[in-house]
């Protein structure tokens, strides 16, 4: 798997990270090396092996449908970069 500039650009777009040209070049090179290393997994026979998403045999963790107090508005917005009244403000979305 070759990680070239296009792949890095695409993945950076999906992850919403702006990269400088210099970063893109460097990351492409580093990721290429890492992916080559990771490709070692292709040597493992995983036929009939089920994937492990949860390491412990825990299941059916449920919560009763009982309301608890919500966060007061001042605490909701205390960290907001752009509070607007009781709302979070973001750049105008044009659809």
């Amino acid at each position: 798997m070759a990680i070239n500039k296009e792949v890095v650009d695409h993945v950076a777009y999906l992850a919403r990270i702006r990269l400088s040209d210099e970063e893109t070049v460097r990351l492409a090179q580093q990721l290429e090396g890492i992916v080559a290393f990771i490709d070692a997994l292709k040597n493992v026979n995983v036929e009939h092996i089920s994937p492990t998403s949860h390491i412990l045999p825990v299941q059916n963790v449920l919560r009763d449908d009982v309301p608890v107090r919500s966060l007061p508005i001042d605490k909701v917005l205390v960290n907001a970069p752009q509070p607007e009244g009781d709302f979070f403000g973001v750049p105008k979305i044009i659809e």
Partner: peptide
């Protein structure tokens, strides 16, 4: 990549 990694995790 991802799915294969989860399987090797099992091993």
């Amino acid at each position: 990549y991802y799915l294969r990694a989860l399987k090797v995790r099992t091993l």
